[in-house]
Each structure stands twice: as C-alpha cells, then as structure tokens.
Amino acid sequence: APHGTGQGFKEVACDDPEVERAALVAVNYLNQHLLHGFRHLLNRIDKVKVWFRRPLGVVYELELDTLETTCHVLDPTPLANCSVRQLTEHAVEGDCDFHVLEQDGQFTVLYSQCHSNPDSAEDVRKVCPTCGLLTPFNDTNVVHTVKAALDAFNAQNNGTYFKLVEISRAQNVPLPVSTLVEFVVAATDCTAQEVTDPAKCNLLAEKQYGFCKANLVHKLGGEEVSVACKVFQKQPQPASVNTAGPAPAVDQAAPAVDQAAPAVDQAAPAGPQADSPASLVVGPMV
C-alpha cells in the first residue's frame, strides 16, 4: 500500500467506467465457468475498493448483483442478446464477490465467489398473483412433465434420439393448472424410432445439445403437453473436459454458484467454459 493513505485502498464510485469494465470482465468470467443453469447479467455494482498492487497494477474488490437470463450456459447466443428473467418468472439473483487485477490495461480475475437466490414468493405474488413459483426438480409434476415432453419431442423426431442432460428450471402454475419446465437434451448414438432402452444410448463424442421449453396442462380426464426445442450445432469437445464423470474440478478462482433449485439425476454437461462465448457462436437449428 502507498504510504500515508491509512486504509491502503482507494474508494471510487461504483459507476466509475474502469470499475464497470472490471465488473463486466468478472461477469463474463462467471458465465464461462458456470456448468449448468442460465447465464447471468450484471444488475448492479454494490461495493468496490481499489487496492494498489506492487510493483504494478490495481486490484478491484467488487461486490456485484447479477440477474439470471433466459440463455442457458450451453446456448451460444451472445450475452448481449440474452434477456433478463422477468419477476413474473420468479427471477433469480446472484450475489458475487470478485477480485479483479488490472495491469497494463488487462483485467484478470483472481478470486470469485457467487451465491444465487430466487426472489421471494411474496414479491412474485405482488406483481403476478397467478404466476408459477420455482419448483424443485424432483417434484412429481416436474419429473412427469419433462418425461412427457422429451417423449413427445423424440416421437416427432425421425432422426437422433435425444437424452435428458439437465432440468434447468421448473414452475408449477396455479391457473391454468400446469407445469412449465426448461431442460437440456443431447444427441445420442441411437435413433429416435428404434430406441428400446434409453440407458444404452450414449452421448455423441462431438456433443450436440438442445434446449427445450415445455408446458403440460393438467385437464380433467387428461393432459396436454407442448414442447419446443432449439438444437444447437455440434460443439467440438475440449480435451480437458470429461462429461462422463462428475463436474470437473475448477481452478481456485472459478466461481461457485448455488442454483436456486436442486438439480436431480443429472450429469454435469460439457460447458463452453474452455472457450469464450464468441468462439461458439453458431446459427441454431430448430
């Protein structure tokens, strides 16, 4: 720390342009290291301290508020084109601590720690009394809806059989009585029409993911399911990522993010963490 300043750090405005640059680097870092769920956008810079680093550079100690977007971490859509989840969808907020080094105009994340929490049910009810609330993934309706939706998708698909990778979001809606789910699928080496035992179908070496949204309406005497999936182009598999085992160990600076609702029975998908989002931009096929 420089002599005579007492505190050893400099107080700067949270909306200072350099602080904003450091915050955006931090949020990009967060998104590149998320293994499941949805990418986040910067909502507010809560606090900042700037520490002088010897012999060169400064370290930004940041507290950031982020918001969940509608783009899954496997979705190659540029972050700028991703929408923030609205309150009516029971939005999830992230609270993050970062240390970002700036040296010679380059920003490097040294430390990160994030936690996420959904908005309170009371707040959602205030703005939308009939909106659904986030539901745990092991809820009976959620499991049933995902299965029905995946079966419907595969039944209409004459080609590859797609397997469930992750349930990413689920809401039970009171009116009309229905269940909304968002989940990730991946192409396998089985064909949709001939699969007998899905457990024997293996994900392709060159991963091809799809992101699905489904709605199952519970009606008297039956149910009605609708599903739409966006299948992304094949992603070359980074040599360092192992999708068959548990989530890959992350480096010391990698953020830990708690998801708002627990995921069940899911393998850790291969994420774009080894590449920048820009390097994965491809036109989606539906």
Binding site: E11, C14, R44, V84
Partner: peptide, 27 residues
C-alpha cells in the same frame, strides 16, 4: 444567532459512491 435559511453556504448533498445504478430491476 439567527441565520436565514439558505445563507449558511452548506455544501450540496454528497452523492454516495455506492451502490451503483440498477441496470434492470432490484429484487
């Protein structure tokens, strides 16, 4: 000592440095 309002030369309110602006909405 009676001082007229506005004649004390008080500084304008200090703008807090943080938190920064909310970009989307506060939850």
């Amino acid at each position: 000592k009676v001082v007229q309002p506005g004649s004390t030369g008080a500084a304008s309110p200090v703008v807090p440095l943080c938190p920064g602006r909310v970009r989307h909405f506060k939850i």
